[in-house]
Design a protein around this nucleic acid. Structure first.
Length: 423
DNA sequence: TACCAGGATATCT
DNA sequence: AGATATCCTGGTA
C-alpha cells in the first residue's frame, strides 16, 4: 500500500508527529500555543487506538475522502515539510481507503491505517481545540461569525508573522468560500498559508462531522467529549454570538475574480457609509464615488452587504448581485455600530468632524460631534429618532463584549476599540 | 446641561 | 437569538 511505502510518513508509529521539525520560526500548525515535542506528547498522549472516538462509522471511508481535496490544495501554497507530510498521509489514506474494504487487508495493515489517521487527526484536533479555546471560537468554522473570523485571521497572522490585512472581518462561511487565489489576493504574502490553515481546520472538523451532520457545534461537543477530546467542549464556551449556518452566507465558490484586482478592503466601499438623502433608496443607481481601492468588490467578502453601496460593484454582474442579495437577505439591515464607527474613522477626510482617531495604534477615538454621529447612525439605520443617548447606550453594550471600552484615563466622548477591533 | 453607566424591555432582522 | 433601540434612574463634571 502506498502509505506504507512512503518514506516520510511516520517512521515510528508509537510516536506522534513532531511539529518542531519545522525549520522556520513559523510552526507548521499554529493551532497549538505550545509546540509539540515528541517526547512530551508521547508521554501525555500515547497513541492508543482505544482513546479515540474514531471508528468506521464515525470516520469511515466517505469521511476520509473529504479531507483529500483540502489537503491536496493544502500543499500548493506551501513548501513546509511537515505540511506535506501530513498531506501525504491524509492523501494516502484516501488513496488506500478505496482498497480498504476491497482487499480487507490483514489485521496488521488495517491497524496501521487506523494509526495513521488517528495520529494525524489527533494532532489536528488537539491543536485546533487548544486554539479554539484560546480564541473562544466554535470548532466549526462554518458557524464563525465575522468576529470569530477576525480572531482567527489575527491569530494566524500572528502565528505566521504575517502582516495583518487592513480589514479582515469575515464569517467562517465567507472564508471557507474563498479559494487559494482569493486568499492570495486578500493577503499577498501569506494568503496561501491562511488558506492552508483553514483547510486543516475544516478537515479536522469535518472528519468528525461530515457536512450533512455538522449542524451545531454543540452536537460536536457531545461527540468529542465522548471521545475524550474535552478541549473541543471547552471551546464552545465562548460568549460570542455564534451564527447559525442558515445565517451565514454560503461560500462564493470559485469566485476568484472577485479578488482579482484589489487587496485592500473597506467595510464600506468608497463613500458609501451613509445613505445620503438622495440615494437612501437602495435601488438607486449609486452615483457615489467608488473607492479606487475597492473597485472589484473585495469588500463584499469583508463587509456586510448592507454597508456597501446600493449600486452594483463594478466587477459584479447582475446575477452575482442577485445571488448576494439572496444570500444576505437574512442579515440585511444588520449593521454593527462599531463597524460603522470604524469606517467613519478610516475616512478622516470626510468624517473627522464627526469622529476621529486619538491614537490609531491604541484604538482610542474621540467623538467630535455626538450630534453628528448620532445623526449619521440614525440615517444609516433609518432611525429618525436616534440620538447620542441611545447610540452611547449601544456603545456601552460593547463593553461586556470586549469590543469597545472607555480608555483607562476616562475622557468624555473618548472610547477605545479593543483588539482585534482596533486593527 | 451633556455625558456616563447600566437595568429593563421592545423591536427588528 | 442577537443586536440594537428605547426608556429609564441615578451619577458626575
Amino acid at each position: 500500500m502506498t502509505c506504507l511505502q512512503n518514506p516520510i510518513i511516520f517512521h515510528d508509529f508509537n510516536y506522534p508527529i513532531d511539529y518542531s521539525m519545522n525549520n522556520s520560526n513559523q510552526r507548521w500548525n499554529s493551532l497549538s500555543p505550545e509546540p509539540h515535542s515528541g517526547t512530551e506528547s508521547t508521554a501525555s498522549t500515547p497513541f492508543v487506538k482505544s482513546e479515540f472516538p474514531f471508528d468506521d462509522e464515525l470516520f469511515g471511508i466517505d469521511q476520509i475522502n473529504k479531507p483529500l481535496q483540502y489537503n491536496r490544495r493544502f500543499s500548493k501554497g506551501s513548501t513546509d515539510l511537515v505540511k506535506n507530510e501530513i498531506e501525504e498521509n491524509i492523501l494516502n489514506f484516501n488513496v488506500t481507503s478505496s482498497e480498504y474494504h476491497q482487499h480487507q487487508d490483514g489485521p496488521q495493515e488495517h491497524q496501521q491505517i487506523d494509526i495513521y489517521r488517528d495520529l494525524i487527526l489527533r494532532h489536528l484536533i488537539q491543536d485546533i481545540s487548544t486554539t479554539c479555546a484560546k480564541l473562544g471560537l466554535p470548532t466549526d468554522p462554518y458557524i464563525w461569525t465575522e468576529e470569530h473570523g477576525a480572531r482567527w485571521i489575527s491569530e494566524m497572522c500572528q502565528q505566521f508573522n504575517l502582516k495583518l490585512p487592513r480589514h479582515y472581518f469575515a464569517s467562517g462561511r465567507m472564508l471557507l468560500g474563498m479559494n487559494q487565489k482569493d486568499f492570495e489576493c486578500f493577503l499577498p504574502e501569506g494568503g496561501d498559508t491562511l488558506y492552508a490553515q483553514l483547510q486543516v481546520w475544516k478537515t479536522a472538523f469535518e472528519s468528525y462531522h461530515p457536512p450533512a451532520t455538522s449542524q451545531s457545534s454543540t452536537t460536536m461537543t457531545a461527540a468529542i467529549i465522548g471521545g475524550g477530546e474535552k478541549q473541543w467542549a471547552s471551546s464552545q464556551t465562548n460568549n460570542m454570538a455564534a451564527a447559525t449556518v442558515a445565517d451565514i452566507p454560503p461560500p462564493f465558490n470559485g469566485a476568484g475574480s472577485r479578488f482579482s484586482h484589489h487587496h485592500q478592503a473597506s467595510f464600506f466601499p468608497g463613500n458609501t457609509v451613509l445613505p445620503s438623502p438622495s440615494n437612501s433608496d437602495t435601488s438607486s443607481n449609486g452615483s457615489h464615488d467608488i473607492n479606487d481601492d475597492d473597485v472589484c468588490g473585495l469588500s463584499s467578502y469583508f463587509q456586510h452587504p448592507n454597508f456597501s453601496s446600493s449600486s452594483s460593484p463594478p466587477c459584479t454582474n447582475s446575477s452575482e448581485v442577485d445571488d448576494d442579495d439572496r444570500v444576505y437577505s437574512r442579515h440585511q439591515g444588520t449593521v454593527h455600530l462599531w463597524q460603522f464607527i470604524r469606517e467613519l474613522l478610516d475616512q478622516p477626510k470626510q468624517y473627522s468632524a464627526c469622529v476621529r482617531w486619538v491614537d490609531r495604534n491604541e484604538g482610542t477615538f474621540k467623538i467630535e460631534s455626538s450630534l453628528l454621529l448620532a445623526r449619521y447612525w440614525g440615517q444609516r439605520k433609518n432611525r429618525s429618532q436616534m440620538n447620542y443617548d441611545k447610540l452611547s447606550r449601544s456603545l456601552r453594550q460593547y463593553y461586556k463584549k470586549g469590543i469597545i471600552q472607555k480608555p483607562e484615563k476616562k475622557q468624555r466622548l473618548v472610547y477605545k476599540f479593543l483588539p482585534p477591533y482596533n486593527m
